[in-house]
């Protein structure tokens, strides 16, 4: 018997009954088969061949194959806390972060230490206007303190870290403490009041 000339239908014969053909394609093949003896013969050859191929395959033990499979590399889902490897990686990442933070801290500390030492050594004496303590920006709730002449300040004892207080006489120290006691501190006015007390009446305070 000669072959059918409809190649498309012949190509679909082995797929008949499988998921590879949708319902409409299957129906078209069935209609064609009803009128084509050559394709019916070919389909018979296909089905015989399929049966022979199936019979050729030994049975396999699915359980044994599954048991031999490697363990999956678990993917860590946030909050699941599973996966030893991922956990190790997480620990490694954390320790790396800690090391980086510690290194940064060391660098900052080593750079900052000479500056800090200089700041403490050069701390201004009491009475010297310290603009860094006053709020002068537009958002300041109070007016900036008036300018204070610097001349008398040079002679005034300071509160420098290095020996400033120890240079004061007993009277001066008492006066200073009294002034300090009298001041109920409000941040914006405290330095000014203190400065005025010292600068404007240096004689009285001594």
């Amino acid at each position: 018997m000669t072959d059918c000339l409809n190649e498309e239908m012949r190509d679909r014969l082995p797929l008949l009954g499988s998921d590879a053909l949708d319902a409409s394609e299957t129906a078209a093949v069935r209609v064609h088969l009803a009128g084509c003896a050559a394709c019916r013969e070919e389909l018979r050859a296909v089905e015989f061949s399929r049966a022979v191929i199936t019979a050729a395959a030994p049975r396999v033990d699915v359980g044994a194959i599954v048991a031999a499979l490697p363990a999956p590399r678990l993917r860590v889902v946030a909050g699941s806390g599973t996966g030893a490897r991922a956990a190790r990686q997480g620990g490694f990442r954390r320790s790396r972060s800690y090391l980086a933070a510690a290194a940064s801290l060391l660098i900052v500390a080593s750079l900052a230490s000479p500056l800090l030492t200089g700041v403490f050594r050069e701390s201004p004496p009491v009475g010297v206007p310290d603009t860094s303590l006053t709020m002068t920006g537009p958002e300041s709730p109070v007016a900036p303190p008036p300018a204070i002449p610097s001349t008398p300040v040079a002679a005034a004892p300071g509160l420098a870290v290095e020996g400033g207080l120890s240079d004061l006489s007993d009277d001066a120290l008492s006066a200073l403490l009294a002034e300090l006691d009298a001041i109920e501190a409000t941040v914006a006015t405290e330095p000014v009041t203190l400065r005025r007390a010292i600068v404007e009446t240096p004689g009285e305070s001594r």
Binding site: A57, V66, P72, L74
Partner: peptide, 27 residues
């Protein structure tokens, strides 16, 4: 599912494909 640790998924995959592979190997 197998990558999330579900062994039944592995079994289903083996069940699905082992016989066709065996047929192919035998042929």
């Amino acid at each position: 599912r197998w990558q999330r640790g579900d062994q039944r998924a592995a079994a289903a995959l083996v069940e699905r494909h082992s016989r066709p592979l065996a047929r192919f190997a035998a042929i």
